[in-house]
Nucleic acid binder design. Structure first.
Length: 214
DNA sequence: CGCATTTGACCTGCGC
DNA sequence: GCGCAGGTCAAATGCG
């Protein structure tokens, strides 16, 4: 959205009396012979109404100017954000191009998943956007397993993948994967013996972990 | 001693 | 069908 795309002016008619047409002028001439007393009464009423209308129109006009200014500021901020997003996206694509030859073409789904994570971060989403897309494309898979993700800040010096999220988890495995130098940890819910919930903790940057709940 | 964590082995699924 | 990589299991180990 650009400010040039939208006509921010409300195009308020601040002087409606300009647009009186010729027929109305003729009609007024025809009534010139009427008594002056009636005319004066009507004139007094008209003047009071006109002054009120002009006052109202002035108020609306000022409001219109203020809104135009606010809209201009909003458009400017939007353009700045859009530029920032474009920069981040281009940086990300460069990074992907550099890493693509290293990452095996196998486990394609996993690699795509990881890039979606980065995209989600760039887009400012805390929830992966891919999950929404997948839900429309592959509804049957989502019926089987519902995976949600959360991003968790961590210290760069903290090598443990233990996340205190208020639930009881038992770590049952840890694995180093090719697409990420830092290991990923696998946890099972230990809140109840029959609890089927699992979570996977992956450190995607030194200060950020992604937790995938299954 | 009991529980949680670690870690190497095994299983499973996907791509070629 | 084979090889590879992610996911899981279970014995070993550590800690309170």
């Amino acid at each position: 959205m650009d400010s040039s795309w939208v006509n921010t002016s409300l195009d308020l008619n601040i002087n409606p009396f300009k647009h009186v047409n010729e027929t109305q002028a003729q009609e007024s001439k025809e009534f010139e012979g009427y008594s002056t007393r009636v005319e004066q009464k009507v004139q007094v009423k008209k003047e009071a109404g006109v002054s009120a209308l002009v006052e109202e129109l002035n108020r609306v006009n000022i409001e219109n100017q203020k809104l135009t200014e606010v809209l201009g500021v909003v458009c400017e901020k939007y353009l700045t954000l859009q530029k920032h997003l474009a920069d981040l996206t281009s940086k990300n694509s460069e990074k992907e191009l550099m890493t693509t030859p290293v990452i095996s073409m196998k486990r394609k789904a996993e690699s795509e998943d990881y890039s979606n994570v980065i995209n989600a971060i760039n887009g400012g989403n805390t929830e992966s956007s891919s999950s929404d897309e997948d839900s429309s494309k592959r509804p049957q898979e989502n019926l089987k397993t519902k995976i949600s993700r959360a991003y968790f800040p961590t210290n760069a010096s903290d090598t443990s993948l233990v996340v205190r999220d208020g639930y009881q988890w038992r770590k049952y495995g840890q694995k180093v994967t090719r697409d990420n130098p830092s290991p990923r940890a696998y946890f099972k819910c230990s809140f109840a013996p029959s609890c089927p919930v699992k979570k996977k903790v992956i450190k995607i940057t030194p200060v950020l972990m992604i937790i995938a709940y299954d």
